[in-house]
Design a protein around this nucleic acid. Sequence first.
DNA 1: AATGAATGAGTGTTCATTCAT
DNA 2: TATGAATGAACACTCATTCAT
Lengths: 196, 196, 196, 196
Amino acid sequence: MAQRGRKKGSDGELSRALLLRIAADEFAEHGYYETKISNIVKKANVTQPTFYLYFKSKEAIFQELEELFRKKLACLTIDSRLEEGLDEQALPERIAGGLIGVFHFFTEHPSLGKIGFYLSPSAADTKAAMAAQIEDNLLSEVEAGYFHQNVDMSIVANGLVGMIDQLTVAKLWTGKNTADELAKEIVAIVLNGLKK
Amino acid sequence: MAQRGRKKGSDGELSRALLLRIAADEFAEHGYYETKISNIVKKANVTQPTFYLYFKSKEAIFQELEELFRKKLACLTIDSRLEEGLDEQALPERIAGGLIGVFHFFTEHPSLGKIGFYLSPSAADTKAAMAAQIEDNLLSEVEAGYFHQNVDMSIVANGLVGMIDQLTVAKLWTGKNTADELAKEIVAIVLNGLKK
Amino acid sequence: MAQRGRKKGSDGELSRALLLRIAADEFAEHGYYETKISNIVKKANVTQPTFYLYFKSKEAIFQELEELFRKKLACLTIDSRLEEGLDEQALPERIAGGLIGVFHFFTEHPSLGKIGFYLSPSAADTKAAMAAQIEDNLLSEVEAGYFHQNVDMSIVANGLVGMIDQLTVAKLWTGKNTADELAKEIVAIVLNGLKK
Amino acid sequence: MAQRGRKKGSDGELSRALLLRIAADEFAEHGYYETKISNIVKKANVTQPTFYLYFKSKEAIFQELEELFRKKLACLTIDSRLEEGLDEQALPERIAGGLIGVFHFFTEHPSLGKIGFYLSPSAADTKAAMAAQIEDNLLSEVEAGYFHQNVDMSIVANGLVGMIDQLTVAKLWTGKNTADELAKEIVAIVLNGLKK
DNA sequence: AATGAATGAGTGTTCATTCAT
DNA sequence: TATGAATGAACACTCATTCAT
């Protein structure tokens, strides 16, 4: 009923969401500077002033997308902490679970992922935050006796972030591997190492 | 002779080299788009037309810097292949050696590193190439019997690239760890894993 | 009856009057160009289309305010003509009376005053008209024998307008002098001069 | 010689001066907001970027013109102080001299005058400063015994500024009176008053 | 080898105004 | 009487790049 009689774009929230979605794709594809407002609005079938009805500026919409990314990512990372009393056999699978979550997220939101992880000037901060979160998790897990302490967990955490990063770009987004495969391999490498 | 009549240190080649160096720093600090030719020349104490005397365009100088990075990086990666007949005990150190080379390079050429690894649109390609190179090395090493074959070496290679990437940004350039420390830790993790 | 169903104090005429009052204050404070319709309606708690329900355009509402000013001013000036047969002793007070009227008006309607006398493109015309009116009065007064004829009454009239103008801005609206004080001083100066 | 071979606008300072002059006229004729940079440059036969080569912004060039006005005006007002030991007979002429200077200035620089005295947001300040200067002069003259003390000299000073203002607009710029006539009349009015 | 001066082409942003409801 | 949504038309400003010398 609320839909009846509504014309294309006659709902503000719809226009806003549309612009946001298109902007995400444009930013992801062309980067911040090569993305033109004029193009976004063209694809959304609205005029430039309409854009400014919903977003304060080009930078503002970009930051909103960044924020969106950060929030969604934060949820995922928090969930991936291992509960205590976990069966040692189940450990690999449990860790993989967390990774799969992240890779799934990147699969489903590639544009958001590119923006938050690669394009944003604050991407380094975001990755640092993620690493800090992971480090926290790892330390709990060390305390729980799952891991030995021969390595600097901050370095491990950052290493994991880097692996996720690169594998997402090189394997996930190219379709060469699935989220599950990547997660399983990372776990295999990091848990057991390469040495025979 | 080449010295005669030279003012303000601006022989042709000198101006060119100066511009190149300043441009590298500017690109690294502000990114491609926020780097203005007008700023580069100001810092080099020359005028804009002088810039175009030595470089075809803004893009051209950027690409030249990229190229410089790629070449220097390629050398390093090639060297890091393990020779056959290596003592198994020496393995970790040998691998670490390669990593240290890379980290040293990033330490000594941070601007070039940022450009080639983070700013350039072709950074992904560069990383892919590096991963391919590493994969090659790893496969030789598998063949030589150093490593088991339970993991996809392409994924390992990309993972390593990712680790290098993130650790460079988060640990090396922030001064939190040295090249040696990082190399040692990576080796520890990837060779033996975290599991007790 | 007109009261039925009225919300938020917004009967038609009320809205209109409210907008007019707010617009006057905004124009006076920020000038024509820095006054935004969007701001006026925000302060009036109505939407932009509502504005256009009552006023044809931004220019139209401004002109309406100008007109308002001009009408109120015209009344004042007309009243200030000196009646014939006036006692010479009473002359200064009589003239001061007219000035006081004008200064009172500016005191009570500063926004309107600013609009009509300073902001409007036709402020010069308004002042010219006022000067003409005053000149008329002065000429009657000359004829009535109150003043000598050694000066060009058009210049005197314009001079008086200028004095009123500047003193309003610099003394009246800053609170440094009252309408009465200013009127008395002007009379003293213009009637008797400065010379000992 | 320095002129030979020079093409239209091939001298930076010339372009700058040209733009400044045209801008003054445009601002004076159309006001700040209705003056478009695009128009200024069109009249100067240069392109928009050229404008920004010499002026930081539209506001900046306007302020530069304001400043120009203020400086020139300040010189004039300072000169108009009466020297002590002046013959009482010469007084009127001496005062008129100062006024003539101001009126001449307005005659020769009408655009600058409009900008500094009417268009600028700080016109009120400029007038206040002028009034203060005049008040200073008047007080010296009172002390020297030229004038009686029955009136508030600050009000007289502001009154004079107002007269100058209005007479400039209504009489000088319309060509109805010359600088000399206006000065003489003002002196006559303010010195001797109107009363028979 | 180097420059003073100039520009083509573009881009984000603003604001008064109106349509459909 | 009132509004949510949308737009036409501008305009200031920027920057890489080049011409003439």
